[in-house]
Amino acid sequence: MNIFRLCGDMTHLLSVVVLLLKIHTIKSCAGISLKTQELYALVFATRYLDIFTHHVSLYNTVMKIIFLGTSFTIVWYMRHHKVVRQTYDKEQDTFKHYMLIIPCFALALLIKTKFTPLEVLWTFSIYLEAVAIFPQLVLLQRTKNIDNLTGNYVFLLGAYRGLYLLNWIVRYFTEKGYRQWITWISGIVQTALYADFFYYYIKCWRNNEKLHLPS
């Protein structure tokens, strides 16, 4: 495992910590898209079906358990916690799940490595992760006052994807015969989705302004 992969995973973990901090400590999920969080829970549930059958390392297994556990915890908080759920911007978070789930599943049936249930679901999770941030980005654009934790959460998620790209470049040059086109192309698409957000995040940060996205 190279440094970019480790930093990418840690950034991903930190994004979850930031989000849980906001939800658990401040008891607010304002500006957070439940649609995106539900899509992430679905991503992890379909990708980590191999958790007990396919052992890579203790590190991988522990991280899988953490991402599964936290993603469902976040969804639970936003849907059921009596204080947190009242801070959810339901009227603004209008993106429809099926508009992302159905095309991703169709694509996974068409383009996959092996035609087995586990492989198709794994591929589906890769495609879905690439676009799962979409409802969150739409919600951010509609939010007038984006708080620091929400801005930082999305920034960390984007940074995690960027670091994974660097990890793949390192692996390509250091591991003989290493290639994974499905993951690479999805990862590039996923990182590109953050480009616009990054531009405004850095611009506002440099001008010492509060984060706001043009609508």
Binding site: H12, H54, V56, N60, F67, W122, W181
Partner: peptide
Amino acid sequence: TEDTKEHDEL
């Protein structure tokens, strides 16, 4: 081209 690695990333 076929992907060559087992799924070893998160």
